[in-house]
């Protein structure tokens, strides 16, 4: 909604030959599938504890997080370390950003340190793209504002593909606070690109009809939105959505848009239940559903590391070949 279109000068098309991963919009199936294949192979290596430690040996990865995150930062850190990179975590609390340094000053500083990979999370849409224009490192968007969270959508896709064998022809219901969700946007781009049907489900204050322009179906009724779905992807409802008046109360939200057993049974038998975490049990998802055999939420976390290894590997290939 609030995303300005990328400036023409930006490396907006994160194709095969670009060194950044800023978003999934514009990526093609023949770019996505090989990346998932690579991630799949890393998933197997992770399980057998046989990851080659020399892929990123001598390379520096900086986790530059302007917004708090434990899961994503840890996942990138593990991915980098498993491939042998030197990983530095910078969070905004320690950085000089708090001392008034601008984003571009920070970029220049990090550039001078000969960083190879810059993993960036920022509360402003477009911040990683701005950094990417100013640094020599490969920039990975680890979530920017309400724009994109590409590695999350890739790990979701890998999880789905492992269970359902395909990413095409599926019906995926993305439920909840879509308007403010970068996870939803990346998933919409990926899933529609791969030929699946995406339904966005939630109250119209969180799923405005303008989202229909992204080539998806809009549902303001949870039952209608879930009927026959192959995958049910729940989004986290931030507390601030209630304080800002978009949702009257947590109990009303759960009553109409929470995922419980009765609603899940409207989806296909054995439909996958996904959640990017952290969950609000009893607000957007009932505990028994989150912990049920249909839930692949823990596997999403596992695939997260594999996908990030694949991304770090893929983006640095030309640099390492040079």
């Amino acid at each position: 909604m609030a995303n300005p279109p990328a400036a023409p000068a930006a490396p907006a098309e994160p194709g095969r030959n670009t060194r950044h991963l800023l978003g999934l919009e514009g990526m093609t199936p023949d770019q996505i599938e090989p990346l998932l294949d690579l991630a799949e192979s890393y998933a197997l290596l992770n399980r057998s504890r046989k990851v080659p430690r020399d892929v990123l040996r001598g390379r520096t990865l900086i986790n530059l997080f302007f917004e708090d995150s434990t899961r994503t930062r840890t996942s990138f850190e593990l991915a980098g370390r498993r491939l042998g990179a030197d990983v530095i975590n910078m969070s905004v609390a320690q950085s000089s950003v708090n001392k008034g340094e601008t984003l571009l000053d920070t970029a220049a500083t990090l550039n001078a340190m000969q960083t190879d990979l810059l993993v960036v999370r920022h509360s402003q849409s477009g911040a990683p793209a701005l950094l990417a224009r100013k640094v020599d490192a490969c920039v990975v968007n680890a979530g920017d504002g309400m724009h994109e969270h590409p590695t999350q959508a890739l790990l979701d896709a890998l999880t789905i593909r492992r269970h359902l064998g395909t990413l095409g022809g599926l019906t995926v219901a993305i439920c909840g606070d879509v308007a403010h969700s970068r996870v939803a946007r990346s998933n919409i781009h990926l899933l529609t690109t791969m030929g699946s049907t995406v339904r966005l489900v939630g109250p119209s204050t969180l799923v405005p009809s303008a989202l229909g322009r992204l080539g998806v179906d809009i549902h303001h009724n949870m039952e209608d939105g879930l009927r026959g779905a192959d995958v049910v992807m729940m989004l986290r409802l931030q507390r601030e959505r209630m304080s800002s008046g978009l949702v009257p109360s947590a109990r009303e939200y759960f009553r109409f848009f929470g995922l419980d057993r009765r609603r899940l049974d409207l989806a296909r038998p054995n439909a996958l239940v996904m959640h990017p975490g952290p969950m609000n049990r009893g607000v957007e998802i009932e505990s028994s559903v989150a912990d049920s055999s249909q839930s692949v939420i823990q596997e999403q976390v596992e695939m997260g590391v594999a996908v990030r290894m694949a991304v770090l590997d893929r983006l640095t290939r030309s640099r390492r070949a040079a």
Partner: peptide
């Protein structure tokens, strides 16, 4: 709105 006070939406669905 809650309490008809004009600040936050009431539980319209319920």
């Amino acid at each position: 709105t809650k309490g008809c006070e004009g600040r936050e939406l009431a539980e319209i669905g319920m």
